[in-house]
């Protein structure tokens, strides 16, 4: 059973939503009956535990596994809300040199041997050693960006670095988009971002800027668990696309309203 898909979730720039994305896609895939292991590779700046609401259940972390104090099976925290989901935390008291690329690959092999279908790696920000360690064992990459200049620029850099590590065809998530601002011409649109980044990336998802991301992180329940969260819906769609389903991109609220108004106007000959 060593045929898990290993996907690294990366961005270059910090604060664009890598960890939130990892937690939400992981939870959404688990809800689709996939066996998912999430790995926090941001050693020294542990955060995925909070996004998942599993911070109080940590006993062992990835460095304990690498240094032989715990087997991966023991270190993986099984989520009680969904038995399909497991989580390997980062160490909080060590730094990014604590796990080498070879050691990361070994940890991933051990997780694969446990029979997971998906392993999602939450990559640290930056392009240094932490990035290299986190991408070492991955065979696919998801690049998260915001429709904002510095984040798109860093995404472009990361796509180049991924290609130099033979991670071609990275998949793109445009996160925190505000459709109203895009319509007013005051924010880069999804097509703009795609056009700028070129054909090296495929669009995997568009996630609206949504307050439910903040409230769901507050309560440790990824938004993809909520039926009413629009961002959660976007993440569920991303999970289905990862499984090969052809899911249309979300019609974001403002557009929809415009559509309805336009239809009514049309009805009255407007």
């Amino acid at each position: 059973m060593a045929n898990a898909r290993v996907i690294v979730i990366t961005s270059g720039k910090g604060g664009v939503g890598k960890t939130t994305t990892t937690a939400n896609i992981g939870m959404a895939l688990a809800a689709l009956d996939q066996r998912v292991a999430l790995v926090d590779a941001d050693i020294g700046l542990r955060n995925l535990d909070l996004a998942l609401g599993l911070e109080n259940r940590i006993v062992y972390d990835i460095v304990d596994v690498v240094e032989g104090r715990a087997e991966v099976r023991k270190a993986l925290i099984k989520d009680k809300r969904n038995q399909n989901l497991a989580f390997l935390p980062a160490a909080q008291t060590r730094d990014k040199s604590a796990v080498s690329p070879e050691q990361m690959i070994k940890v991933l092999d051990d997780i694969k041997a446990e029979g997971y279908n998906f392993i999602l790696i939450d990559c640290p920000a930056g392009i240094e050693q932490g990035f290299k360690n986190a991408t070492a064992g991955a065979d696919e990459a998801i690049v998260v960006t915001n429709p904002e200049m510095s984040s798109v620029r860093d995404a472009d850099r990361i796509i180049g670095l991924l290609e130099s590590q033979d991670l071609r065809g990275a998949k793109l998530i445009v996160n925190r988009i505000r459709m109203k601002m895009v319509e007013q011409g005051e924010m880069l649109g999804v097509e703009d971002v795609q056009e700028i980044l070129g054909t090296g990336v495929l669009l995997l998802g568009v996630v609206p800027d949504d307050e439910t991301i903040i409230t769901s992180t507050n309560s440790g329940e990824p938004a993809s668990m909520s039926d009413t969260s629009r961002a959660g819906q976007a993440y569920r769609n991303i999970a289905r696309r990862l499984l090969g389903e052809d899911v249309p991109f979300l019609q974001l609220a403002e557009e929809k309203q415009g559509g309805i108004f336009a239809k009514i106007k049309k009805l009255f000959g407007g």
Binding site: E148, M149, Q184, G185
Partner: peptide, 19 residues
């Protein structure tokens, strides 16, 4: 000019240079 298209133009130039 809208800031969205200003951003797009600026990004194009800076990425051409970066790349």
């Amino acid at each position: 000019e809208k800031t969205g298209s200003v951003a797009k133009d600026r990004l194009r130039v800076v990425l051409a240079s970066d790349r």
